[in-house]
Amino acid sequence: MSRRRTSWMVAILMVSCLMLAACAGQATEKPANTHKVLHEAGATNVPDHPKRVVALEFSFVDALDELGIEPVGIAQENKDDVSGLLGKKISFTEVGTRQQPNLEVISSLKPDLIIGDFNRHKGIYKQLQQIAPTIILKSRNATYQENIDSFKRIAEAVGQTDKMNQRLQLHEERLAAAKQQVDPNDQRQIMVGVFRSDSLTAHGETSFDGELLERMGIDNAITKTAEPTVTITLEQIVKWDPDVIFMAEADPKLLDEWKKNPLWNQITAVKTGEVYEVNRDLWTRYRGLDAAEQIVDEAIQLLNQKNK
């Protein structure tokens, strides 16, 4: 065999060995670190420490803030929704409204995690999954405990369970301290209502604020309802007859009409002057840990001022 041919064969063998080694290296190359997160729409593998998170509900924004994470994209309806929620301004891109997230804008942000609401976004889960790993959790029309569970799941997803445990411990301590201010002999029953000209909505005992206040020993007059929040009539309010009404939103014209209506004036809360206007965003939209603590403090303060 000629020396030239031998050299050529050696070269071929060396190239082949290099290619095999490269293939072996690719086969054993460790994939990006991910972990499986169970959620309301199934299970999703998400990065261990996602950096670019899109949040499509306010309580998720609050949860991420508690965990030290600033979302790159947030759904909101009004320009000051997020600053009102967090009490500070942060830098983010608006990705449409919570009702109608803009998938094109979300995709342009190149997120590595999207957090959607079960009530609003389960129908577009597959589309969101095509953009980035997505988890679907409960927030809107969910109970207080379900929102707490969602906070835990978010912490698991973003790898911040230590911060979660610390914050939940502080939360429990604050609620326990607040509960000490509730008179155990107070038998008054409350109702949280959103009163618009076109609809009346009551937050029952299984709503976020309803269940939260029940845990504090503050009973809800709206019980045994099919859903946490229910559409009602003035006649039904009279039937439930709450001792205290927290108005999260009230149409002025509607209230003026009701003041002239004998039914409205039959309600115990109206007769005793215990109808209080409260902030709708805080009481019905935010649903985070900080919001829960503020709701409890305000409710107890308003209830106790009547007892003084």
Rank of each mutant, 00 (worst) to 15 (best):
L56T: 02
W240R: 11
V158D: 00
A41P: 12
V95I: 11
M216I: 01
L56G: 01
G96H: 06
P50Q: 11
I69P: 00
N165A: 10
H121S: 05
D241G: 10
A24P: 03
G193L: 07
L302G: 10
E293I: 06
S199F: 02
F118R: 14
P71C: 10
N220V: 07
G204N: 08
V46M: 08
E173A: 08
E274K: 15
E104S: 14
K271S: 10
P47E: 01
T44N: 07
G25N: 07
K253Q: 12
T93G: 04
L13A: 15
P242R: 04
M191C: 05
R188Q: 11
A24D: 02
T223L: 05
K152Y: 03
Q236D: 05
K163S: 04
L302I: 09
A250R: 06
G210V: 02
R140N: 09
G116D: 10
L103N: 03
F58L: 15
T143S: 15
M191E: 09
P242C: 07
N304F: 06
R98V: 12
E235A: 15
L234W: 04
E94D: 12
Q181A: 00
Q266H: 10
W8G: 04
S207N: 05
K138T: 04
V270N: 03
C17W: 03
A22C: 09
K30P: 08
E66C: 14
N220M: 01
I190N: 01
P252R: 05
E277W: 08
G123I: 07
D241S: 13
Q26M: 15
A11H: 01
D290K: 13
S199G: 02
N78A: 14
T6P: 00
K308Y: 03
P262C: 11
P262K: 08
S83M: 10
T97Y: 04
N165R: 13
R4Y: 11
K79I: 14
A221G: 12
D209G: 00
E257V: 03
D297N: 14
A22R: 01
E172H: 13
Q130D: 14
I90H: 11
S59F: 03
D117G: 06
L200T: 05
H203A: 11
E277P: 13
L18S: 13
T284V: 09
T134I: 06
P71N: 11
R153F: 00
L103S: 06
Q145N: 11
E277F: 09
Q160T: 06
D198A: 08
M247F: 13
V278L: 07
A27T: 01
F92H: 13
M216H: 03
A250Y: 01
L303G: 01
W240K: 08
N265S: 11
T268V: 02
N279Q: 09
K259F: 02
T34M: 13
L255F: 00
